[in-house]
């Protein structure tokens, strides 16, 4: 790995606690007030801000390089999930764990997709339009909007008494992506630990 890349990676790792501190501090206080602070806290806030300002483009650089340069990607991912392939047995364990991780991640992604597109509504009809034997309804649907930022408003009759409604995963897209990023790492580590334990 080039020396500059090594320095960048070290910065990204060691500055991460500072970035997280900044994010937590920023979410707990008023941003305007925080940025206008004087004294030690003001200086600290500015320092953390500069750290983030440097951190973001470097993180973007590393992410892009990982996508397009295989050698770099392999090196980073191996370090992240601590893949050991010192001999054929460890290579075998790695490949089995990778297979398990891949299959389980696909399964989780399919589940997420299903849970995010399905909508279910159980409601009672308003009194005025109820008929004998028809007190309510169950509505099941699919919402798939690849480019839309918002789902359309629920199709529910005026004055209907909603008993239950489900309209997709209560997760932001960033949260869903984070889970799909963390899940393969955890499942890989779990599988390789289990295989090592069996031996």
């Amino acid at each position: 790995m080039k020396k500059i890349d090594s320095i960048i990676l070290k910065y990204l790792v060691y500055a991460l606690p500072l970035i997280l501190t900044l994010l937590i501090w920023g979410s707990l206080g008023d941003l305007e007030q925080l940025s206008m602070q004087k004294g030690f806290l003001g200086t600290l806030w500015d320092l953390l801000g500069w750290t983030l300002l440097i951190w973001l483009p470097l993180a973007l650089y590393v992410s892009l390089k990982m996508v397009f340069i295989r050698k770099f990607r392999d090196l980073i991912i191996k370090k992240m999930i601590r893949i050991n392939e010192r001999d054929e047995r460890e290579s075998y364990i790695t490949s089995e764990a990778a297979k398990f991780s891949f299959i389980s991640t696909i399964s989780v992604a399919i589940l997420f997709l299903f849970l995010s597109v399905i909508t279910i509504t159980v409601a009672n009809y308003p009194e005025k339009i109820r008929e004998p034997g028809k007190n309510g309804y169950i509505s099941v649907g699919l919402n798939f909007f690849p480019f839309s930022g918002e789902l359309p408003a629920k199709r529910i009759q005026d004055d209907s008494l909603e008993i239950f409604t489900y309209s997709g995963l209560p997760l932001s897209s960033a949260s869903a992506i984070l889970i799909l990023l963390i899940w393969p790492i955890i499942s890989f580590k779990y599988s390789s630990f289990r295989l090592l334990k069996i031996e």
């Binding site: 010192r86 001999d87 054929e88 047995r89 460890e90 075998y92 069996i198 031996e199």
Partner: peptide, 14 residues
């Protein structure tokens, strides 16, 4: 190879 591999081979695990 690693020592763990030798151990696994001897135990019949690998």
């Amino acid at each position: 190879v690693t020592r763990a591999t030798i151990s696994s081979i001897e135990k019949g695990k690998y």
